[in-house]
Simulated scan of single mutants.
Amino acid sequence: MKLQTRYGGFTAAVNSRIAAFLAIVLSLAVATGAATVHAQTEPVKLAILGDSLAAGYGLAPAQAFPTRLQAALKDKGRNVTVINHGVSGDTTAGGLERIDWMMADKPDIVMVELGGNDMLRALDPGATERNLDAIVGKLKQAGATVWLVGMLAPRNFGSEYVQQFDGLYKKLADKHGVPLYPFFLDGVAQDPALNQPDGIHPNAKGVDVIVERILPFVTKNLDDAASVRRPARP
C-alpha cells in the first residue's frame, strides 16, 4: 500500500514537471508566432532619393510619383510604404550630401532617381557618374537595397555627351550589381499631353503612365529575395 502511494506521488511529480515543460514550450511557440506575424505584416519601406520628378513639382501631393506608386502597390496587395525624398532642383552632388538625413527613416530599399538636373545644366557626365557611384556605395554600406533609375540626355546635346551620359547608369548598375530601370520618363518624355507646360515635368496623367510602366520593375525586385535585405532596426 505504501509502495503504491509512493509510486503515485512519483508519477504526479513527473506529470507536473512535464506539464510545466509543455507550458514553456507552448508559450515560446506563441511568442515566436507573434513575432513572425509582426515581421510579415510590417511594411517594406521604399525611399525615393530624387529630384523634382520624385518631389512632384507642379502637382498636388496626392499626385506625386511616390504617392501614386504606393497606391498602385497597395492595389497589387503589396505592403509597401513609399517615402518621398525628392528635392526639386537637386543634383547628384546634392543627393550625395543628404544621404545620412534620408537614412534616418531607415528605408529597406532606396530608389535613386537623380541625374536629370546634372544633364539639364550640361554638367560633366564624369562628375555625375562619380556622385552616383558614391551614392550607391554609401547606401549599400548602410545596409539598404539600391535600385537605380536612369535618365537620357536630349539628342541635341551632341553624340559625345549623349553617349557618356546615357551609358553611365548601366555602367554603375553593372559595377554594383543593382537593378536598373533605364529611363524614368519612358512613355512620357516629349508628349505634350502628359507633361506640364514647361515640357519637362509630367502632369498627373504623365505620373500615372510612369507608375504603370515602372510597376513591373518594382514588383519583380520586391519578389527577388536576394534584392530585399532589410537592415536591423532599433
Results as ranks from 00 to 15, higher is better:
N221F: 07
F10E: 14
V218F: 02
S227F: 05
F21K: 15
D105M: 00
V110I: 06
L139N: 00
M111C: 08
A31E: 12
P202H: 01
G58M: 09
F184Q: 07
A62W: 06
M1N: 14
V30H: 09
F65I: 08
V25Y: 13
I200T: 07
V37W: 07
V207Y: 07
L172I: 15
A226I: 05
K170V: 13
G143R: 10
T92E: 03
T67W: 03
G126C: 11
M103T: 15
R233P: 00
L185R: 07
A55R: 05
D223F: 06
T91E: 04
G187Y: 01
R229K: 15
G187E: 04
Q40D: 10
R17T: 10
G33H: 06
P43M: 06
D166I: 04
M103P: 04
A189D: 12
L152I: 04
A64V: 05
S227L: 01
Q164M: 10
K220S: 13
Y7I: 15
E212N: 10
V44D: 02
Q190E: 14
A226L: 06
L168G: 03
A62L: 08
V146Q: 01
G94S: 07
V80T: 05
A226F: 03
P231E: 10
K138R: 15
L3M: 12
G95F: 00
K170M: 13
K140H: 06
T81R: 12
L46T: 09
A134C: 03
T36L: 14
G126H: 14
K171N: 11
M151L: 08
Y161F: 04
P216D: 12
G116D: 10
A60V: 08
M103A: 12
A23T: 13
D90K: 05
G126N: 15
L114H: 00
T128P: 02
G94Y: 04
I83P: 00
L28S: 11
P216Q: 09
A35K: 12
G77F: 00
G177T: 06
V37L: 10
P61G: 07
M111I: 14
K171I: 08
N203C: 02
F65E: 13
L123K: 14
R213F: 01
D166G: 07
L114A: 01
K138A: 13
G187L: 01
R17S: 11
L22S: 09
Q4I: 13
A23P: 04
T32A: 15
I210F: 01
